[in-house]
Every structure is written in structure tokens, then in C-alpha cells.
Design a protein around this nucleic acid. Structure first.
Length: 557
RNA sequence: GCCCCCGUAGCUCAGUGGAUAGAGCGCGGGCCUCCGAAGCCCGAAGCGUAGGUUCAAUUCUUACCGGGGGCACCA
């Protein structure tokens, strides 16, 4: 808002200068207003004079001077504008611009920070998509937190978002067969038979748990069924159990999906075959050595990929192609896939498949998040009792809690490896960023309780005079609150949720400084009222940010 | 060999085509007759190397060096 106003002012000044023959430019440059890094460079700054300098053949500082002389401050929030450094124009604003924003926060409440950048565009965020042959583990946790918050951010900026998880439940896949055989072997063992685990069988204890469940539920009634049929049956039963467990674990993590999409359903409905047919028709599928191949090299992939094996079984790529075609057919105009680091190699082939099917690969955005390592007391944690070689998400949540788990997963850019310090996440101290930010909220609630006990009215920024707010701690806090909508927009458009955790920590920090500096409930009634309004606004923004992050806003800790 | 990510303070990480590169931990020093010290304030300390593009590069680009991960008619 304020940026547009300033940009308009600058544009007006530029046009006037042009008409007066002071600046000879043909095209109006884009005028961007930024918040300067240094504290002594005003509230907003623009580099337009430097951008324009070459075109008008004048020194940048002279151009800036001309613009400033044409700026009228009358009836605006501009206090003054200066030329600085190599040719920046720095704007110093009257405090009223912040008071206006306080009013906006009070009026918009839980909607403060939302926008309509997405214009209701239908977007799907696909994440987690774990094979239903094991529990959700910590790497899925990073993907889960990332996907969930990316979805929340996109929704906040006006997209029509669907959260979706793809179930790799094709019964004929090597992994699923292996899984079924493992469960079957454990089942036989629970029944007392000396039955060997298959080679490369699933070793985790959860396989035994499933086998015990199956014995409890069905006893030995499957023994009469032929072994091959029995294994197939077990694969399905065990898959269903795994899926339920995955849903339970993810729900505990605060992650819920609108759609669980079954790979098996793609095969059974003939959509995989259909996609292959489409690829053939479009000339991007061919036969070689008894198999059918996707001509993905046409679209920048390193090599062509097998769609259908020589034994007639379609590969997962065929199913993935069908799935992505289905996404676009379902009306999604933008698709975001969130994958683990082991999948980076699939970006090229998936985009190639999408392009070969006649969809625009630009509408598919793939986010790869990097590896997660758990540390405890400086030691790398590798093994889990319950799952074998991975740590389960549920174990992590039991250990550090949902909020800490989510927050820690979101603290780093997806592009960075993530070292998760269990001790830190558990510690109830100021070292722990989750406690730090939640404490800010609890502290606010404490102040508001105190004010209520004192019998004070609870003012909002709309019904109180904010002009007593003028010290630097108060100004810094208001500025941070003012940043929120833009931060949400940026984090959403870039699909970078870590910007939000960063912001929340910054906001908590300026609030804590304000708290130390400025006593809220005091003898000075106008000041108390204004500060209470500011505290209220801070609470609103914290709560809105926490909601996006999916963490609690505790009133007491 | 090819592909992806990272290389910023002692450590873990943010950040930006521009003016003085930030935070937490750790380290040193201060602050509670007062709304929660789970807090605040002050201090020391940094853009892997070499080219290129640019008025301006830590940011874009190329090469190299270092770390992590991936390269199936498995999913």
C-alpha cells in the first residue's frame, strides 16, 4: 500500500521532470521501493535514479536531486526525502503510516497477512507420498511440514489449494511384493512355524506388529489358502494397516490431506494405459527390445525411460505420467510436488513426461528438500528400535513434541541439509527458538491478563490515539508488524516456508525488546491504552503466523 | 563420468545486483524493590579460490577446490 503510494509519487515527479525538460527518458522505468538494510537510510528507498542515469545521461545523484525537487509532500505520509550514497532516494515517513497499519491489523484480525495474489487459481500441493510399506519417518516429516506450510501460504495468498498425497500401492511392484512376503513370513513365525524371512525382507519391528495384528484378527484361517494368493492378500491387508498408521502419525503432526490418491486406482481405471496411448499417439513413445520407451530426451532428459517392461508390466514412470496428466485434467492450473533429495533425478523425466503428454511443464514446480540428520548431545542418531534403520516421525514427536518438530523442520531453507538437534528441541530454555517465539505470545497474554485485572478497557488500534507510540522500540515493533503481509506473499510465491520461521523469530525478538524497554500498564493512561493496542496487534500477527506454521499459541507456559 | 544441493562469524544457519552482510549457540561483560529473567542490553569475530558480465557482484555466470546426495526394464 504505502509502497504503491510512494511509487506513484515518484512516477508523478518523473513525469513532471520529463515535461519540464529536466529528464529526457523514453520509457518510464519500473519504480521499486525497498526497505533499506541500514537503520539510517530512512523507511523506504528507491534506486530509480541509478537505473535511469545512463538513459538520461546524467549522474545518478543529479537525477535523484531532480526527482526530489519535484516531489510534493503535502497531504502525504512523507516526512522528507533525501539523496544518499551513490544515488538512492531515501524516504523518511511520518509515524502515521505505522498507526494506519495498526488500524489495518485491528480491522482485518485473522485475515491480516492474507492477499489475493493467487486470484483463486487452482493449485495442488503433493507431498509426503510415502510407500504404504512402512511408517512415516523423519525425512517424510520434513517433507510433511514443508508441504503443509507451503499449502497454507499459498492458500493465504489467494490460491485455491488442494493438499494431496500419492499412495504407491501398486500391488505388483517389487517393493510391495517384498513387503507382503515379509509380513507373511512374520505371520507364519507368529503362528509358530520356522519360516525364513525373504532376502532383502523388511526388518523393522513394525512388520512383526502387523503380523501379530493379523493373527489376532484372523488367526490361522489363511493357512488353507495357497501361498501365492495368501501373500497377495497379506500385501493388501498390511498396506491398509500401514496407510492407517501413516494417517494417524501425520495427523499427530498436524498434517491432513484433502486427497489420498491411489496409484492402484490409476492402473485399475485404465488411466495408465490411456496415458501410454496418448504418448504413442503424440509420437513420444516407441518400442525397443520388447519394451515401450518414453522419448524423454526430446524434452531435455539425459536418456529415454522405460514405460512398459518387456514382461508387459508398466513402470512407475508410466503411472507417474498418468498421475500428472490426471492432475491437470482435474483442473489444477499449477502443481507443486515436494520430493526428497533422492528424487532430484526424476525432475527432468517427470517434466518430460508432462510435456510429452501435451501439458505445460512450467505449471509443474518441483521442490526438493535436502537430507535430515538427527543429533543428540552432538552424536549422530542413526538407529531406531521400532523401525530398523530409520527414525520414525512418531518417535520424534513423542520426544520433542509436535510444535518443536514442525518448527525445526521449517527453520532451514529446503535447499540446505538439516541438522536436527534433539536436545535443543527438547530444552525448555531461551536457547530453543520454539520456546522463544511461543514465550512471546504467552508474555503478551500475561500482560493482557494483568491489564484486565487492573480493570482496563481492552483497546484496539482503531479506537485509541496511537500518537504516544514514538520511541524506537515501539517503532521497530510496528515496522515488523507492517512487514508481515509482504513476508507472507514472498514466502508463498517462492514456496519458502523457512522465511516464516525466520520472521516469527525476528518478531518475537523485537517484541521482547519492546517489553523490556517499555512498561505497558502504567499510570499514564493514554500511553497505556496505545501500548495495549500495540500489544494486541502483535498478538494478532503472532497468532496468524503460528496458524500458518501449524504450531500452538500457548497463553501460559 | 554425468546430475542436484551446499560452501557466509569458532559452530548451526539466514540474507541481498547496490550505501555499514544478519540471527541463534558458544565466548567476554552488564540488567530483576517494576506487566513472566523461558527475557533484555553491550562487545569480539565472516562472504572457499580464480576469471567473466555490470556504473555496482558476497549475490548473476564459468572453471577449480571442499562437503553432502543421486544416477534400474525398483518405487
Amino acid at each position: 500500500m504505502i509502497r504503491e503510494k510512494l511509487a506513484n509519487k515518484v512516477q508523478q515527479a518523473l513525469m513532471e521532470a520529463k515535461d519540464a525538460g529536466e529528464l529526457a527518458f523514453k520509457e518510464l522505468p519500473e519504480i521499486t521501493l525497498e526497505q533499506p538494510k541500514g537503520k539510517n537510510f530512512g523507511d523506504f528507498t528507491t534506486n530509480v535514479a541509478m537505473v535511469l542515469a545512463r538513459q538520461v545521461q546524467k549522474a545518478p545523484r543529479d537525477v535523484a536531486e531532480i526527482i526530489i525537487n519535484r516531489l510534493s509532500h503535502e497531504g502525504t505520509l512523507i516526512e522528507r526525502a533525501d539523496v544518499a550514497g551513490p544515488g538512492f532516494i531515501n524516504f523518511y515517513l511520518k509515524p502515521d503510516w505505522l498507526y494506519e497499519i495498526m488500524g489495518t491489523i485491528a480491522t482485518e484480525g485473522e485475515n491480516y497477512g492474507r492477499s489475493d495474489i493467487g486470484h483463486g487459481l487452482k493449485v495442488q500441493v503433493e507431498f509426503v507420498s510415502a510407500n504404504p510399506n512402512g511408517p512415516i519417518h523423519v525425512a517424510h516429516g520434513r517433507g510433511g511440514a514443508t508441504g503443509d506450510v507451503v499449502a497454507s501460504l499459498l492458500s493465504a495468498i489467494g490460491y485455491d489449494v488442494t493438499r494431496e498425497s500419492y499412495i504407491n500401492d501398486a500391488l505388483n511392484s517389487t517393493q510391495m511384493q517384498n513387503f507382503g512376503k515379509s509380513v507373511h513370513a512374520r505371520y507364519m513365525q507368529v503362528l509358530g512355524y520356522d519360516f525364513p524371512m525373504p532376502e532383502d525382507g523388511y526388518q523393522g519391528d513394525y512388520i512383526i506388529d502387523i503380523a501379530k495384528d493379523l493373527v489376532d484378527e484372523y488367526g490361522d484361517k489363511f493357512l488353507s489358502v495357497p501361498e501365492a494368493e495368501r501373500i497377495l492378500k497379506f500385501t493388501q491387508l498390511a498396506q491398509d494397516k500401514m496407510l492407517d498408521l501413516q494417517k494417524t502419525d501425520l495427523a499427530k503432526f498436524g498434517v491432513k490431506f484433502d486427497v489420498w490418491y491411489s496409484e492402484r486406482s490409476l492402473h485399475e481405471s485404465g488411466k495408465v494405459q490411456k496415458a501410454i496411448d496418448v504418448l504413442k499417439e503424440r509420437g513420444y513413445a516407441y518400442e525397443k527390445a520388447g519394451a515401450i520407451w518414453l522419448k524423454s530426451t526430446e524434452f531435455g532428459d539425459d536418456k529415454d525411460r522405460t514405460l512398459v517392461r518387456s514382461n508387459g508390466q508398466p513402470t512407475y514412470i508410466a503411472a507417474d505420467a498418468a498421475y500428472h496428466l490426471e492432475k491437470f485434467n482435474r483442473g489444477f492450473q499449477k502443481v507443486v510436488d515436494i520430493w526428497g533429495p533422492d528424487h532430484h533425478g526424476y525432475i527432468a523425466r517427470t517434466k518430460a513426461a508432462v510435456a510429452a503428454l501435451g501439458c505445460d511443464p512450467e505449471n509443474l514446480e518441483v521442490i526438493i528438500y535436502q537430507a535430515v540428520r538427527l543429533f543428540s548431545g552432538g552424536e549422530l542418531v542413526m538407529m531406531s528400535k521400532r523401525a530398523g534403520d530409520v527414525i520414525l516421525l512418531s518417535e520424534l514427536i513423542d520426544e520433542v513434541g509436535k510444535d518443536a518438530a514442525r518448527f525445526f523442520f521449517l527453520m532451514r531453507s529446503s535447499d540446505s541439509n538439516l541438522d536436527f538437534d534433539l536436545e535443543l528441541a527438547k530444552s525448555q530454555s531461551n536457547d530453543n527458538p520454539v520456546y522463544y517465539v511461543q514465550y512471546a505470545h504467552a508474555r503478551i497474554c500475561s500482560i493482557l491478563r494483568k491489564a484486565q485485572e487492573t480493570g482496563l478497557a481492552m483497546p484496539t488500534a482503531n479506537d485509541v490515539d496511537l500518537s504516544p507510540l514514538k520511541c524506537s522500540a515501539e517503532m521497530d515493533l510496528m515496522k515488523k508488524l507492517a512487514d508481515f503481509p509482504e513476508l507472507v506473499a514472498e514466502a508463498g510465491q517462492l514456496c519458502e516456508p523457512h522465511r516464516l520461521t525466520r520472521y516469527v523469530q525476528d518478531l518475537a525478538s523485537v517484541f521482547h525488546s519492546f517489553y523490556t524497554e517499555c512498561r505497558v500498564v502504567s499510570e499514564d493512561e493514554p500511553l497505556t491504552a496505545a501500548r495495549l493496542a500495540l500489544v494486541n496487534s502483535t498478538k494478532t500477527v503472532l497468532v496468524n503466523a503460528f496458524r500458518l506454521l501449524g504450531i500452538e499459541a500457548p497463553e501460559k507456559m
